Simulated scan of single mutants.
Amino acid sequence: MHLGGVSAFFLAWLANFKLLMFAFGKGPLSDPLISLPKFAVFACLPIKQDNLIPDSPKTAKQGLKSFWNYVLKGLLICLFLKAYDYTDMIHPKFTWVIYSFHIYFGLEIILAIVGGLAKSVIGIELEPQFDEPYLSASLQEFWGRRWNIMVTRILRPAVYEPVLYLSTPITGRKWAPLIAVMGSFVVSGLMHELIFFYLGRNRPSGEITLFFVIHGACLAVEVGVKKVIRGRWGVTGIITGPLTIGFVMVTAFWLFFPEFLRCDAISKALDEYAALGAFVKDVSEALLPKSFNNVSMV
C-alpha cells in the first residue's frame, strides 16, 4: 500500500508529466546542465530547478520542517492506529476525520523520509509539499499554496498553461484562466483515479474525478467572483477558513473517502504497520542479546 501508492504518484504521475514536457523542450528536465543521474532523480522527485545549482542562495531554504514537527505527527498517527481498535464505539463520520488527518500526516512523513534520502544521496533539498492546509482561508489558497504543492507546480506548466494558451483566443484573456483551472482539476482527478487503481486494483468509479471537478468548478467560481468584486468587499478569514475546510471535508466524505475505503486502504496499511513492527521486534531481539554478551565479556 505505502510503496505502491508512493511509487505510483512519483512515477506514473510526476515523472511522466515531466518527461512529457521534456519531449516538447519544456519543464525542468530540459536544462542541458543536468547530469544523467540528476536527470533521473529530478524526474521522480519534487525538486525545484533552483535547487539543482548547489551554490544558489535559493537552496538555503529548507524543504523539510523541524524534526519535532514530524515526531509529533508520528505520535498522532500512533494514536490514530490505537483509535482504530475502538471504531465500533466512534461515529463513522468522526472516524473519517481521523482518516483525513492520518492521510495528511502520513504523506508528510513519507515525503520527509524521501527528502532526507535525497539530501543524503545527492545533496539536494526537496521543496516543502504541504503548508498546514487546515489553515486555508479559501479554495484557491488550499489547492494553490497549501495542499500538495508539488502537484500544483507540475500541473501548471503541464496542463494549466497549455489550456490557457489554447482557450485564450476562444474565450478571451478574462475567462481563459477559469477554463485552464477546470482542465487542471479534471486531469488531477483522472490521475487520482489511476493511483487508486494501483492501490486497490478496482475499476474506477468516477467519484474521485467528480470530486476534483466539483472543486475545480467551485474554485473557478471563487476566482471569478474575486475578479468581479476586485477587493470592494471581503470576508474575514475567521469565517472563510472554517467554511473552506468544511467544504473540503464534506465533499471528501461524499466522494473521496468511499473510494478510499473501497480499495481497503486502511486495513492494508494496518497490516503493513504490523509487519513493520514485527520486523523491528525480530531485528532488535536478534541484536540485543549479542550486545549484552559483548558487554558481559568486557
Rank of each mutant, 00 (worst) to 15 (best):
M1Q: 08
G4Y: 06
S7L: 15
A8D: 06
A12F: 05
G27S: 06
L36D: 09
F39V: 03
A43K: 01
A43I: 01
C44I: 11
L45H: 00
I47A: 05
N51Y: 13
P54E: 10
K58C: 09
G63W: 02
W68I: 12
K73F: 10
L75R: 04
F80V: 14
L81V: 10
D88E: 13
T95Y: 05
Y99V: 13
G106A: 10
G106F: 08
L107R: 02
I109G: 01
I110M: 14
G115E: 02
L117S: 12
A118H: 00
I122G: 03
S138D: 10
Q140H: 09
W143D: 03
R146Y: 08
N148G: 06
R153A: 05
A158F: 12
A158I: 07
A158T: 14
P162G: 07
Y165P: 00
L166M: 13
V186D: 01
S188Y: 01
G189N: 02
Y198S: 06
I208L: 15
L210Y: 02
A217S: 13
C218V: 14
L219C: 05
A220I: 02
V221C: 11
V223H: 05
V225M: 07
K227P: 01
I229G: 06
R232G: 13
G241N: 13
P242A: 03
G246Q: 00
F253L: 11
F253H: 13
F256D: 06
P258S: 07
F260A: 02
F260W: 09
K268N: 14
A269Q: 08
A275E: 12
L276C: 13
A278Y: 09
D282S: 14
N294Q: 09
V295M: 12
V298R: 13
